[in-house]
């Protein structure tokens, strides 16, 4: 389904609803030299799903994301995107990193419209409006705060309407308040545009807050694949939220807990 959006009197954008990428990761392995980073990963992601990935530092989260973006090639196994084997750079995906990777010698708007061929200025302005920076298209990157830079990076990632958004700890360097604002922004834009999203994070709370599913990677294996069915927007102070958080943390830290006699909420658990 395609819908034309009227924007400043121009019909410049067609938002493709339910157009998120469908992913199927099959027996995926990645080694750097002798060092096996990802071991036989299997995962399916539905179109428009929001999957969050947590795990200890060095467990291979970024590697998985880079494979999905086509920035690295797998040693073994395949990634299917909408039924087709992914080869080379993933043109339907956009990646956002912890460092904004903006060009300091281009103004905000010119950063956002990087690589656009048609109506670059209008589309860039549209994307800037989406992230709430529509009033400063002509500023230099150096003049922005860290949070604003990440919003520009988000606008740049979204301007081409990717079917898959890969986020590698995009909020890792932000302060707590800015983080919450950015989480809400990402959630809102995801709900509007329905791209498929994969978010890597160190913050279990962030993972539970944003994910339809939380995946835990340990030493190159997916060891927890936990659907989160809490209604959005999620209340981080609620009891079920806290319990999910503890469950994931226990998994990562391999903590043993005595079974709770009457759990207030049980989440299904698929260990692979």
């Amino acid at each position: 389904m395609m819908t034309q959006i009227e924007y400043q009197g121009m019909s410049i954008h067609s938002v493709k609803y339910e157009n998120g990428a469908r992913l199927k990761i099959q027996n995926l392995s990645k080694a750097f030299g002798d060092f096996q980073v990802l071991k036989d990963i299997n995962l399916e992601v539905s179109p428009g799903e929001f999957v969050t990935v947590v795990g200890k530092s060095g467990c291979g989260k970024s590697t998985l994301l880079r494979l999905l973006g086509g920035l690295d090639q797998p040693t073994q196994g395949q990634i299917y995107q909408n039924g087709q084997v992914l080869q080379g750079l993933n043109r339907d995906a956009r990646v956002m990193f912890q460092d904004s990777r903006l060009l300091p010698w281009r103004r905000v708007l010119d950063n956002v419209s990087l690589g656009l061929k048609h109506q670059a200025q209008q589309q860039g302005q549209w994307a800037l409006d989406q992230v709430g920076l529509g009033d400063r298209p002509q500023q230099w990157i150096m003049q922005l705060s860290g949070g604003q830079r990440q919003r520009v990076a988000l606008a740049r990632a979204l301007v081409s309407q990717p079917r898959l958004l890969l986020l590698d700890e995009p909020l890792g360097a932000l302060d707590a308040l800015t983080r919450i604002g950015m989480q809400n922004l990402i959630e809102t834009l995801w709900q509007e545009q329905r791209f498929t999203a994969l978010l890597v994070t160190h913050d279990v709370e962030e993972a539970v807050c944003l994910g339809d599913r939380v995946i835990v990677i340990e030493e190159g294996n997916i060891t927890l694949n936990l659907p989160i069915t809490l209604p959005r927007p999620r209340d981080t102070a609620s009891v079920p939220f806290a319990e999910l958080k503890v469950q994931i943390l226990d998994r990562i830290l391999k903590r043993q807990r005595p079974p709770v006699s009457e759990p207030a909420y049980t989440a299904p658990l698929f260990a692979t």
Binding site: L71, L89, F97, L103, L114
Partner: peptide, 25 residues
């Protein structure tokens, strides 16, 4: 090098990569 990788992800061809990233940088 991250900027160059970013440029490639955003579909810049070698010539554009030179003018928008390498030379200004």
């Amino acid at each position: 090098p991250n900027l160059l990788e970013m440029g490639e992800v955003y579909g810049l061809r070698p010539r554009e990569l030179f003018w928008t990233i390498i030379l200004p940088g």
